[in-house]
Amino acid sequence: MTDTPGWSSPDQPHQQPNQPQQPSHGYNAPPPPQQPTIKPGVIPLRPLAVGEIVDGAVSTMRKHPKLIIGAAAVVAAVTQILGLLVQLPFLDDLTSVATLDPNTVTEQEAIDQLTSGLAGFFTGTLLSVLLLVLGTVFLSGFITVIVGRAVLGQPVSFAEAWAEFKPQLVRLLGATLLTGLIVFVGAIFCVIPGVWLWVLFGLVTPALVLERSGVGTAFGRSRALVKGAWWRTFGVLLLAAVISWIISWIISIPFGLLGAATTGFSADPAAALSAGSLVLSTIGAIIASTITLPFTAAVTVLVYVDRRMRSEGMDIELQRAAGHGGV
């Protein structure tokens, strides 16, 4: 798909087909007839409304359920289960911190238990986050390829999507880590710079994967596409995040209740750290991630497509790539 002229950036040379000259119209001549909307895939090939972006993301998931939901389920299961296994060895240390009674131990013993428990907790959390990042990087790049094909109405198999994404995997990992670092540094000084940078570089993944660009070029492309439309981009990405949070919250409720039931709805802080409660919460996280991760990834790709259609006239290129060159 990235071999078609539709996804190349304006800086990449590509041949333009000969277009017939349009007749000029005088001031009193009627306007030219409006071209019909072309929709070969999940979205119409024209600048999109916010609802069309959300609907396009859902339509892509429904059109390719085995590819998208299947891959998301595997990634979510592997990352969440491994994360749970990483945290279990530190469970006793964390439980000792939650049940620490300063009246029964000396100050030094309390400090030692607190230091040991928190060190184990942060170690397990760090490893879990690293696993989640690796899984998210693979899933976001893989889904980017599928959404790109779905926009053009082109079929795609797992092998085709993987073959197209595989050369960009290492670059995407580096770009994702760099984006996280930049946003984190911005958030340290203040929340607002962190949010501004998150939106400014929010389109790095689709730019890198679909345009087959380098890391630096992808950052530049994201900045250029968001420029002049920061608030709209922020609104759409925030909407996707809110929808994902609501879905995760709804899914987590029954698993949270089941976890509480296994402890007899105990008010003891250590009860929430029991192995049974953690397993149930992990199952809930797997189900939620299977839905929310592909949804947010698909929305991000469609925001990228919309920005290119609005700022670069890419809808014409996509129409040609989809086989509507006569438009």
Rank of each mutant, 00 (worst) to 15 (best):
A110Q: 07
V97P: 00
H64P: 05
G83K: 00
P32R: 13
P44H: 03
V105H: 12
E107L: 10
D55G: 12
A73Q: 00
A110K: 01
T37Y: 03
S128K: 09
P32D: 10
K63L: 15
A57N: 05
P47L: 11
A72F: 07
R46C: 00
L88Y: 11
L100Y: 03
L91K: 10
D112Y: 04
Q35F: 08
P40T: 06
Q113M: 08
L126G: 14
P44F: 02
L85W: 09
L126R: 07
I111M: 14
P33C: 07
Q80L: 08
H64Y: 10
V54N: 02
S116E: 15
Q35P: 02
T106L: 05
F122E: 08
I81F: 15
S128H: 09
K63P: 10
G120S: 07
L126Y: 14
K39A: 06
H64F: 11
L85N: 05
A72I: 07
G41P: 04
L91Y: 08
V86L: 13
A71Q: 10
G83E: 02
P102W: 03
D55R: 15
G56T: 01
H64G: 08
F121D: 01
I53R: 01
G120D: 04
A49L: 12
I38S: 04
Q87S: 12
K63Q: 13
I81C: 11
L94Q: 15
P44T: 04
F121S: 12
A57Q: 05
V58F: 11
Q113S: 09
V86W: 05
E52F: 05
P89Q: 08
I81N: 04
D93H: 02
L100W: 00
P44W: 00
D112G: 03
L114Y: 07
L91G: 09
Q113W: 01
R62V: 15
M61K: 00
V97E: 02
E107F: 14
T99P: 00
G51S: 06
E107R: 12
T123K: 06
L88S: 11
G120K: 04
V54L: 14
D112S: 08
E109R: 07
L91N: 15
R62N: 14
P47G: 09
G51Y: 09
I38Y: 00
L94Y: 10
V86S: 06
L118I: 13
A76M: 04
I81Y: 09
L82G: 15
L118D: 04
T115L: 14
Q87M: 15
V50A: 15
F90Q: 01
I69R: 04
G70S: 09
I81W: 07
V74M: 09
L48F: 05
V74S: 03
V42P: 02
T99H: 07
T106V: 10
L67V: 08
T125D: 11
Q113L: 06
L82F: 10
T60I: 12
L48N: 00
T60N: 01
T106Q: 08
K63E: 13
T123P: 03
Q80G: 04
V74W: 06
A57R: 01
D112W: 00
S128F: 09
R62F: 10
I38V: 15
V74F: 12
Q34V: 13
A98F: 12
E109H: 03
T37S: 15
V58H: 07
V75L: 06
T95H: 12
S96C: 13
